[in-house]
Design a protein around this nucleic acid. Structure first.
Length: 395
RNA sequence: GGGGGAGUGCCCGAGUGGUUAAAGGGGACUGGCUGUAAACCAGUUGGCUCUGCCUACGCAGGUUCGAAUCCUGCCUCCCCCA
């Protein structure tokens, strides 16, 4: 099985697991001998339209399949999203309207095309409402495929169950719906992070229950966020989104702990130049920006970074804000609160901690009322990395 | 249907009538050091017209000079029994 074997090895090289063993190679072989494409599935959550680096790890893998001329099927979980909050206890996830989901999906899609090949012969986008809007009878059939014991095999369910944390029936239904997606689109392969292992494998069970061939499962390691520990996610604030501005990408990458660099280089498939940690990280940052914004942007982001954090100068581009003042004196807490969208109390705290600068000079926390001329047209720095150019506007 | 337990600040988690804006930890933020890394040191982490005032311990009432702490109703969750 020569080439199919080496293709499998290539695809599996940076994967966490390829299950069951040998299945992927066998599928590639079969596809090649039958002259057909493999259908490679990825489900996505339409509540989070912005793609971050963590998503790109999986997308990159899909791209590799495409480059081997297989077909990627992205599934938008519009139906599951409309049902509402799956994890009963996480912050109320607003149920989205059809239009919002559609819009999110399109945003996601356009961002994903930064990595994926949009060619229609190798790409397909589907909404699972197409088949999940099923009758009770159909749901019964689906629900009968799996036992509670099987569900409790999943580690997070088992943990939560043991800890007495609520698990809604709806949540138990989610893996089933995801598995049914594989039935509906005849998935040959499904890809996901290692945290999806259970769901992906359950998809096999469900396919079998419906008399379909079982998909191969390829899991990829989870990319840690810029805290270097937790899974990258927007809500945890440790993500770098592919459409973040270059300067922000650069700065956020530089905050990555050294220990996480190896993982990032490997999972993002960026060449590691070696050398001292600082240079490696700078190179990592440039490569990330180059990938999503181009070489030129990478250069200028680095220059902006050096200017701001190595030379400690005010950035070239600073956001302008106009702030309302009364008369000739400005009340600092009020001005800062308005300019940076924080509370006045927080502004006072920052002032007291020496965290506010005007033109590089720390503001005296004793004087809360200053002449307007001291602020008007000046660049105010809050903490280490927030800058605003203030324009005073008399009310 | 019955019995028991629980709901505290961004998160976890102490506190069972008074000096509690609420211990401790985590996270986050600020300052120092530095490579916007790690480690470490110091501090902050409800709001405001800020040497004080207001609002807060699931929700709504009540008892009391005084409640997160006691009582009543409601909501939510967990466990056990049927």
């Amino acid at each position: 099985m020569g080439s199919a074997g080496s293709e499998a090895a290539f695809l599996e090289r940076n994967a966490a697991e390829s299950l069951p063993a040998g299945a992927l190679a066998a599928l590639l072989e079969k596809a090649s001998s039958e002259g057909r494409q493999l259908r490679v599935k990825l489900g996505l959550d339409p509540t989070a339209p912005d793609i971050h680096l963590g998503h790109t790890v999986v997308l990159q893998k899909l791209r590799e399949f495409q480059d081997l001329s297989h077909r990627v099927v992205l599934i938008v979980g519009d139906y599951t999203a409309r049902v509402g909050d799956p994890s009963g206890r996480s912050e109320t996830r607003p149920t989205l309207s059809g239009e919002e989901i559609e819009a999110n999906a399109r945003t996601y899609e356009s961002q994903a095309f930064g990595v994926l090949d949009p060619d229609a012969s190798r790409y397909e986008l589907r909404f699972n409402g197409e088949w999940l809007d099923m009758s009770m009878a159909d749901l019964f059939r689906l629900a009968a495929t799996t036992t509670v014991a099987q569900m409790l095999d999943r580690e997070d369910f088992a943990t939560r169950y043991a800890a007495g944390t609520p698990i809604s029936i709806l949540e138990l239904l989610y893996p089933l719906m995801q598995g049914y997606d594989s039935v509906a689109i005849d998935a040959d392969v499904e890809i996901g992070g290692t945290d999806q292992t259970f769901n992906l494998l359950l998809g096999r069970e469900i396919q079998r229950a419906y008399g379909k061939p079982e998909q191969a499962v390829l899991t990829l390691p989870i990319l840690p966020g810029i805290d270097g520990v937790e899974k990258m996610s927007k809500t945890k604030g440790n993500a770098i989104a592919v459409n973040d501005p270059p300067e922000e990408m650069y700065g956020r990458t530089m905050r990555l702990p050294d220990e996480a660099m190896d993982t990032w280089f490997e999972l993002l498939a960026i060449e590691d130049p070696g050398g001292d940690p600082r240079e490696r990280k700078r190179s990592l940052a440039r490569s990330i920006i180059a990938r999503f914004h181009g070489e030129g942007e990478a250069e200028s982001a680095e220059e902006a970074f050096d200017r701001q954090f190595v030379d400690h100068e005010v950035p070239l581009e600073v956001e302008d804000v106009s702030v309302t003042v009364e008369g000739e004196t400005a009340h600092l807490p009020a001005v800062l609160a308005e300019a940076f969208s924080i509370s006045r109390s927080e502004a006072r705290r920052l002032l007291g901690q020496g965290g506010v600068r005007v033109d590089g000079e720390v503001l005296d926390s004793e004087e809360l009322d200053v002449p307007v001329s001291r602020l008007d047209g000046m660049v105010v720095q809050l903490g280490r990395r927030q800058f605003r150019r203030i324009t005073a506007k008399t009310s």
